[in-house]
């Protein structure tokens, strides 16, 4: 079942002389429950694509359809609501709110939506991400890996249609990176969470079901990954 579709996406920075084409007519279709890795060299346009898919950066042309809605045809209020409810973003630098504790950070998107949250689901997530002992801590009191786990919990809490991860392990050591990847895979498997992850690490990309390679703003390769049982 199609959940996300990008049609003829173009993104151009600058004007005439200093013009940089970050995305050049990108078309992409994502099925529900897919775990996609977007790989490419630095400056290839992979992060730009992710941000545009997540509704935080506007394309110069083209459209992004999420659950049948063209997200860039929506007004700010509707777009914000869509980001709150249907998109989850994970960044390389965690981007937690420093003045909120772990619990408040995780619940923030739901609270912004004035919504009620499922306490069992919250406990389950906290459990899964091993944050039980850190629930009242401020971000500054956590390690990098723990902060990223909070960021994942925050994203999963609102059960988004798609989870977009921008180099989620870019700032972590290899041990923590593996753990984060395992968590993302578990979320994908347990909750059938659609995940699109940007990485330049080809090994980490193999955790995904599908790898899209991007070069100079164009998709140059799009292939399925065969996983062994023990993965």
């Amino acid at each position: 079942m199609e959940i996300l579709r990008a049609e003829n996406l173009c993104k151009i920075y600058g004007k005439s002389g200093t013009k940089v084409v970050a995305l050049n007519n990108v078309n992409l279709m994502v099925e529900k429950g897919e775990f996609i890795a977007i790989v490419g060299a630095s400056g290839s346009g992979k992060s730009t694509l992710l941000h545009i898919l997540g509704g935080v950066d506007e394309p110069t042309s083209g459209k992004v359809v999420l659950n049948g809605k063209d997200i860039y045809s929506l007004n700010d209020e509707e777009q914000s609501k869509l980001r709150r409810r249907e998109i989850g973003l994970i960044y390389q630098f965690y981007n937690l709110i420093p003045t909120l504790n772990v619990r408040e950070n995780i619940l923030l998107p739901i609270k912004l939506d004035n919504g009620k949250y499922d306490i069992n689901y919250f406990n389950e997530l906290v459990d899964m991400l091993d944050l039980n002992n850190r629930i009242t801590h401020l971000p500054s009191e956590l390690s990098g890996g723990q902060q990223q786990r909070v960021a994942i919990a925050r994203t999963l809490m609102s059960k988004p249609s798609v989870l977009l991860a921008d180099e989620p392990t870019g700032n972590l050591d290899s041990q923590n990176s593996k753990e984060i990847m395992k968590l993302l895979t578990r979320a994908n498997k347990i909750y059938h969470q659609t995940i699109i992850m940007v990485t330049h690490d080809k090994v980490l990309a193999t955790y995904a079901d599908r790898i899209i390679t991007i070069e100079d703003g164009k998709i140059v390769d799009d292939k399925k990954v065969m996983h062994h049982e023990n993965n």
Binding site: V56, D76, S80, K81, L82, R83, R84, I87, N95
Partner: peptide, 14 residues
């Protein structure tokens, strides 16, 4: 921080 809130779905009005 304001950018993060925006990416988490906080509207301009909020």
């Amino acid at each position: 921080q304001l950018g993060i809130l925006r990416s988490l779905g906080a509207s301009k009005r909020q």
